[in-house]
């Protein structure tokens, strides 16, 4: 996947922030190190950013920075787990999961009342999968199982989950966040989600 890039100069012109602010936010970890992409151009080395991600991030920071301290913002944007516990009704109320997704979650874990952060994130991934409209109930349940098994590999949540279907048989794939894979041309990529994006979304809804 070739993502569209934006140069630092263009970014500053577009968003109206200054160099000082940009570097300050970087120091506070509001903008991840990995988004600073160095490339050589005819004027020497230049820094580029992934266009969509950085623009939406800066828009969010600008909106929220009046109400929250930068440290608090950093905590919200970081994919590190937060210390929370939620019950199912709360999650539905805050629209982290839909009724349907919660029911799927309960099928897998009938006795769960209170969810830890990890469970909340997984439930929200299930919700996303169902909301995409391409994934069936049984498949969503499988996704949950796959996630729970793979979490030992990716303990820091920096992973993606994808669903590939061929001839009606679907397979879930969990991979590291920047990993690439190529699928059989006859198969179809049904669903694809970045778990750290889900975490960001969950955190935004929680706070």
């Amino acid at each position: 996947m070739e993502q569209e890039l934006i140069s630092k100069k263009e970014l500053l012109d577009l968003t109206g922030i200054s160099y000082g602010q940009l570097y300050r936010w970087k120091r506070k970890d509001l903008i991840p190190e990995g988004w600073f992409i160095r490339k050589s151009t005819f004027t020497g080395q230049e820094t580029f950013f992934p266009r969509e991600k950085i623009l939406s991030r800066i828009e969010q920071i600008k909106q929220l920075k009046d109400d929250l301290s930068l440290d608090e913002l950093a905590r919200r944007f970081s994919p590190d787990p937060a210390e929370i516990a939620l019950c199912g009704e709360d999650m539905v109320k805050r629209s982290i999961v839909s009724e349907q997704a919660w029911r799927v979650y309960r099928l897998e874990h009938p006795n769960t009342k209170v969810c830890s952060f990890r469970d909340v994130v997984f439930a929200s991934v299930v919700h996303r999968a169902l909301a995409s409209g391409n994934v069936g109930l049984d498949e969503a349940r499988n996704a949950l199982r796959t996630l729970e098994q793979s979490i030992t590999m990716f303990s820091d949540f920096r992973m993606r989950i994808a669903c590939v279907r061929k001839l009606g048989v679907s397979v879930w794939v969990v991979q590291s966040a920047d990993g690439q894979f190529v699928i059989d041309p006859d198969a179809k990529l049904v669903f694809d989600a970045d778990v750290s994006e889900c975490i960001e979304d969950v955190k935004l809804r929680l706070l």
């Binding site: 200054s18 160099y19 020497g44």
Partner: peptide, 18 residues
């Protein structure tokens, strides 16, 4: 690159700022 830049005895390729 910076907002306020005051330089003396500096050798640089590019200086950008406010």
């Amino acid at each position: 690159e910076g907002d306020d830049v005051m330089l003396t005895y500096t050798k640089a390729h590019i200086v950008r700022g406010d």
